[in-house]
């Protein structure tokens, strides 16, 4: 009888161990680290190969696009990663503007293959997933853009208080 019970107990433990194993290995293999441009710069080549998620301000004059090969490169300037800090510095639009006009900001070259998104323009916020190459260029697999001015326009006819 006891043998019967422990049989099930061990079986259950095995299933549990398998689930834990799958979670741990999958997390290790697929974790994406949120970083700012400054943090990545500080970490340097030790971050190479890690899967990263990065946010930065697009510097308009650096955008280069070849529609034939669909290769897109541009530079992003460092913006803080913390929402509270962004608010303290005057909101996202202000932070993005400051980042682009400040020549002392850390910049990072980004390379992406694919169609050029509409919203890729000066002072847009780029959120990129990818990895840092050995050449110091960030190779993005995924590129999301947010344009704060567009969001402000989207607020309904000066209706506030909601």
């Amino acid at each position: 009888m006891l043998a019967g019970r422990s049989k099930f107990f061990i079986g259950g433990l095995l299933v549990l161990a398998a689930v834990v194993y799958l979670i741990i290995t999958s997390t290790q293999a697929n974790a994406e680290y949120f970083m700012t441009v400054d943090e990545l710069h500080a970490e340097g080549q030790s971050a190479a190969g890690k899967s990263l998620r990065l946010s930065g301000a697009v510097v308009g004059e650096t955008i280069q696009y070849n529609p034939d090969t669909l290769t897109l490169t541009f530079e992003v300037a460092h913006v803080p990663g913390d929402n509270a800090e962004i608010e303290a510095q005057g909101g996202l639009a202000q932070v993005l503007h400051d980042a682009v006009v400040d020549p002392a900001r850390t910049r990072l070259t980004v390379s992406y293959t694919g169609a050029k998104p509409d919203l890729l323009q000066n002072e847009a916020q780029a959120i990129m997933t990818g990895h840092l190459g050995e050449d110091g260029i960030f190779y993005a697999d995924e590129l999301l853009l947010k344009c704060p001015t567009k969001y402000e326009e989207a607020v309904p006819e000066q209706v506030n208080g909601n």
Binding site: T27, N30, A31, E32, Y33, F34, R53, G81
Partner: peptide
């Protein structure tokens, strides 16, 4: 203190065998 996320590959890999 570092924000780390997991995307679709995590789920696919972990959930597939189950």
């Amino acid at each position: 203190g570092v924000k780390v996320t997991v995307g679709p590959p995590f789920y696919e890999r972990a959930v597939g065998p189950l």
